[in-house]
Structure formats: C-alpha cells, structure tokens
Design a protein around this nucleic acid. Sequence first.
DNA 1: GTCTATATGCTGATAGAC
DNA 2: GTCTATCAGCATATAGAC
Lengths: 191, 191
Amino acid sequence: MSKPTSANRREQLLEAAAACFYREGFEAASMRTIAEEAGMRTASIYYHFDSKDALLVAVHETALARIRKATSAAVEGVAGPWQRLESACTAHLEMLLTGGTFFKAVMRQVPSKVEGRDMIFKLRDEYETIFTDLIAVLELPSATDRDTLRLMLLGAMNWTFTWWRPRSGPSPGSLATTFVNNLRTGLDIAS
Amino acid sequence: MSKPTSANRREQLLEAAAACFYREGFEAASMRTIAEEAGMRTASIYYHFDSKDALLVAVHETALARIRKATSAAVEGVAGPWQRLESACTAHLEMLLTGGTFFKAVMRQVPSKVEGRDMIFKLRDEYETIFTDLIAVLELPSATDRDTLRLMLLGAMNWTFTWWRPRSGPSPGSLATTFVNNLRTGLDIAS
DNA sequence: GTCTATATGCTGATAGAC
DNA sequence: GTCTATCAGCATATAGAC
C-alpha cells in the first residue's frame, strides 16, 4: 500500500508470506522461506516491504479488505434480518475455511511485539462492525446482550479453523445455517 | 512426568514457561527468558526437560489435567442437564480467563513442527469428551447435530480469550449463563 | 528490481566443572 | 542440580554491484 511497484510481484510475495505465516507461525516463518516460495532472494523482499512486521500488516490489510468485500456483498439484496445474518456468516465461513491461506493466517494470534499491532486490531474491529450492524436490527428479547451475542457467534465461527477439514463434516454454508438456527430457534424442547 | 526431581523447581519452571509461551508465543519465547523468569540458568532447564518441545507438552499436560479436574468437579451434584452444562461452562471459562497463564498458553495455536504435537491434540480431545457427554444427555430437537453444537459452544468459549478483559464486561460465570441460555431458549421473538 | 555477500546478534543445545 | 563457557546454525536486515 506504500510503494509504487509491480503489483504482480507484490501480490505473489503477500501470498507466499500468508502461506508461511499460516503454516509455520509468524515467529517461526523465515524471510528466506517466504522469498524462496515467492521465487526471489531474501534481500529482494526489502525492496517491496520495510520489514517482516510490515509484511504481516500487509497480509492483514489484504485479507480483511477481501473478506469485508465478500461479506458485504453477500447480504446485498437479501431480505429479512435473520436471513441477512445467515448470508453474512456463510460468506465469512467460506472465506475462512475455503478461501485460501490468507484468512487462516489472519486468524492466528497476533504476536505481541509486532510493529503495527494496533493497526491490525483496528482493521479487525472495523470488519466486525458488519456483524454489529446485522445484529442491531434483529428483533430480540429485550434482555439480550447484543455484544455478547456477536462475540459468541464470531467465536463459534472463528474457532472452526481449528477443527474443520475439507473432506469431512459440514460445508461452510451448512455450518452457518446451523449456528444461526441454533441461536434463533432455541434447542430446549421442554421449554 | 518423566524424571525424578524436586517437584518445586519443576513446577516453577513450568509456570515460567507457560507465561512466556503465552506472552511471546512458543517460537519467539527463548529458553534464556524462561530460565531467567524461573530463577536459573539456561543449561539447568535441560536437567528437568529434554527440549523446548518437551516443555510445551508438559505445560499442556499440566493445564489440561487441571482444567479437566475443575470442570468435572463443577458438575458434581448438579441436577438437570442444562444446569450441568452451564456449570461446566462456568468452570471452563473461569479457568481460561482468570485461572492464570497456563490455560491461555494452551489456547494458542500449536506450532506445526513440535515433537509431541499428537499428544497435545490427544489431551485436548480427551478433555472435550466432558462436553460431549454433557451434550449427549440433553433433550434436543431430533434434527440437532450434537457435534456441531459442542464445537459451536467450545468455539464461543475458547474465543473469549481474544477479547475478554478482567476489568470490563461480563464475568466468566455470567458469560457461561448467557452462552447456554442463548442456545437453550432461542432468540427470535417472532417464532 | 533483483542480485551476491555479509554484518550482527540471538537461538537451542551440549560439555564438563563443582 | 546448577553452574560457566561455548558451539554451530540461523535470524533479520543492509551495502552495493548490476
């Protein structure tokens, strides 16, 4: 986002960095490996990015811009507040689980010493306002804590990347449906 | 768990390791820092543990044994399947959020190259059977997927450590109540 | 824009005295 | 059981040629 340069190589570099950060963790991933995976030498990275930390921030910027776009688009033209929430959840889970390494890299805990950590959290909060807004228009029992509800739903979704596997279990879409329906309709048949 | 040695020093070392792993991440945490925080020299660690990886596994063993004990104890004598589930969730969240660094260290993504990774996942799965059992005895609509329900609830709980802060927001207990009630009673007042 | 070469420092781990 | 001393390797980042 800062230097004027061939967009292709930059993109390639970001993709490689995301893959390494996800696979090995930020601290364990080395600039050598990232460079190798992007088809260049270590020193060349520094023409495109100032530091390893800057690379992490850029990965977050790219990932969150993309998922924000996808989630926003998913609710467009959908009627009914619950259906809109479900569509957003489907988009969120699809990006997270089947949208490539970019989003999985972003779900890892952000290292405590990274320069630009605040920016990363700002981007994340900004994205989550989509869900704040979708939940704000739901008709809920008056005692409902909407903040807790949002965090509960996002937690359930974001945790899926620790257990979900492509070839077994429910699709991202059916997971989204189940999550939202469990909250919407209630599970206690005795009540 | 392997060598006969002064239990105190070992415990001290585990505590220091857990704190460092949580604060800095496993890869970024150094044996030097851990040693310093435990009041000894780097080389002395290797009398108690074979490697940094072994230290991580031991931290998981300790943490999961403790949380398992706490959660099991919390449901004892509690009547009613939903109340039992809520008690277990309260215990789980209390350990995770206010039980010290041990449990937060365990919630971090497990590095991909650690020796003993399988053991760590085995311990985690073993612990989660407590929730499998509690959910198995709930009376639910026949179409309910209990596996997804468990993963949804655990996800919501385990994600709290990314946003929860001691001085603001709901207590672990009231969070547990809200999570379980949201699932139990349903939120759509139109239905 | 990408390269080779390298500076500088920190890493996990080991040897062996006490 | 804990120490001092040290090894060999890899880390991020920079300098400067092309």
